[in-house]
Every structure is written in C-alpha cells, then in structure tokens.
C-alpha cells in the first residue's frame, strides 16, 4: 500500500529537526520569562493563620488521648465553640478572648473563589501572567507550525500501529490510506509539546516552570477554599471521643521496668 512512501531527507533537515529545536528553545525561553515575571506574592495573614489553625486542630485530633480530659475539653471548646462562652478557661484562651472558636466559620462569609478572584486584582494579574507565559507562546507556535508545515508527513516511526493512533499521529492529514506509522508535522508538534517535559526537567532542574500538565491540574484545583477545610476540621473534631491513654502507659511502664531490672 504505502510501503513505498519515501520521505525526502530535506524534510528531516528542514522540518523535523528545526521543529524539535524550536520547541526546546521556546520552552527554555518561556521558563526564563516566567521566572522574570514571577512575583514573590506575600501570603495573606488570615490565610496563613487558617492553615496553622488547621494543623493545630489536626494535631489535637490525632494526639487527643495524650492529654487529660480537662485539657482536651478546654481545647475543643476553644476550637469549635459557636455560641457558648468559654467556661473552662485556660490561661491562653483568656488572653485570646474570643467568642467563637477558631474553626468557626460564620455563614455567608465563605466567599466563593470566583468572587475573591475578581475582588483581588493581584490574583487576576497573577493569572494573566501565567496565561501570558503559557498560552501565548503555544498559540503562536501552533499557528506557525500550521502555516508552514501543515499537510504533509514528516517522519515515520519504526513500528506499525493500529488505526486508533491515526488521529494522534496524523493530525492534519485526512487520508485513510496512509500507513499509521507515518507522523504528520502537526502531530510531531504535539508530541514535542507534551513529550519534552522530561528533557526540560533535565535542562532546567527539577521544578521548572514549563510543567504544563501540572499547571493544568492547578487550574482545575484553583478553587481551594480554606473555610471549607476549617469547617471539615471542626466536624471531625466534634466527633472525637476522648480516651485518656496515660493509665495504659502505667502498666506498660511496669512491664518495661520489669524487663529492665531482670
């Protein structure tokens, strides 16, 4: 069938290799541009504090059995109190002087991230910068590849593939008779775009900024809401059963000492 499809060496010299080189260079360039544009964003005090509260509450939940019941109750109230005033005040709680527990999130205050984004110009700016360094070069290179190299076969992979790979490898060629192991130039572009990550991490160090897939994950997980984790933590703290572990330790200590003496 298409066994005798012979590729010109000029295609290798003028399409295949230049395309790969250009992709690598653009990747490197993008890395440096995004490095230049990156601003060290100062974290918001409230967000930092919320994160710390969550960690502390998690510690309390995990190690609750290591402190006496009284102390645990005082802390639980301190964390998840809603209306009741602190009765079992410990010195720390008095100085903090709060009515609502640390994990309490007032209703309605849980703003959705979308609104937060628009209210905070910094965040929008950040998004734009990310887009600048990601989408614009990609569109440009895609347009460039499309314009100059579209519609012909650029390479042949040395093993046969099934028909299903046609859409992956022969993007831009609408011929069903061509063997699937031939790669069109546009597909070569896509293969480079997603396949060069390993090379970049080799050239630019482990945490390079060109990690597209990771960034896409970030985009989808963008709506991280700290108030949600706060209330989740509060719920799980509410159901913790306190059982002081220390009495057990006395017996364990006894057996340890018996072993030690003998």
């Amino acid at each position: 069938m298409a066994e005798d499809l012979v590729l010109d060496t000029a295609i290798r010299d003028w399409v295949l290799i230049p395309l790969s080189v250009v992709m690598v260079l653009i990747g490197v360039l993008r890395y440096f541009v995004s490095k230049l544009m990156r601003t060290s964003q100062l974290p918001d005090a409230k967000i930092v504090k919320e994160g710390q509260v969550v960690i502390r509450a998690r510690n309390l939940r995990a190690a609750a059995n290591f402190i006496p019941v009284k102390s645990f109750r005082a802390r639980k109230v301190y964390f998840s109190n809603e209306d009741i005033q602190l009765e079992n005040c410990d010195p720390q709680a008095i100085t903090v002087d709060i009515e609502n527990g640390l994990l309490y999130v007032p209703k309605g205050q849980a703003q959705n991230p979308q609104a937060q984004m628009f209210s905070d110009p910094n965040m929008a700016m950040d998004m734009m910068k990310k887009n600048l360094s990601m989408i614009i070069p990609q569109t440009l290179t895609f347009a460039w590849v499309n314009f100059f190299f579209s519609g012909f076969v650029a390479a042949k992979i040395p093993f046969p593939l099934t028909q299903r790979f046609r859409s992956m490898l022969q993007n831009g060629i609408d011929l069903s008779t061509v063997d699937v192991s031939y790669v069109s130039s546009r597909s070569w572009y896509f293969l480079n775009l997603f396949g060069l990550r390993g090379l970049f991490s080799l050239i630019l160090g482990e945490e390079n900024a060109t990690d597209d897939t990771q960034r896409m994950m970030q985009m989808s997980g963008f709506g991280f809401d700290p108030s949600k984790s706060l209330s989740a933590e509060k719920d799980s703290l509410d159901i913790v059963q306190h059982e002081w572990a220390l009495p057990k330790f006395e017996q364990r200590a006894e057996s340890v000492l018996r072993k030690f003496i003998s």
């Binding site: 220390l246 006395e250 200590a253 340890v256």
Partner: peptide
C-alpha cells in the same frame, strides 16, 4: 497525672531516664 506522665516517659525511654524514675 504527673505520675502517669512519668510512667509514660519511662515507657518511651525504656526505663533509661533517671529523672522519670525518681519522679515516679
């Protein structure tokens, strides 16, 4: 409570902590 915590110290150190022993 103090005695219990001394006991837990003994347990955690394998009885090598003299202060905890005295404490008990």
């Amino acid at each position: 409570a103090a005695k219990k915590y001394y006991a837990s110290t003994i347990d955690l150190t394998g009885g090598k902590n003299t202060r905890a022993l005295f404490g008990v």
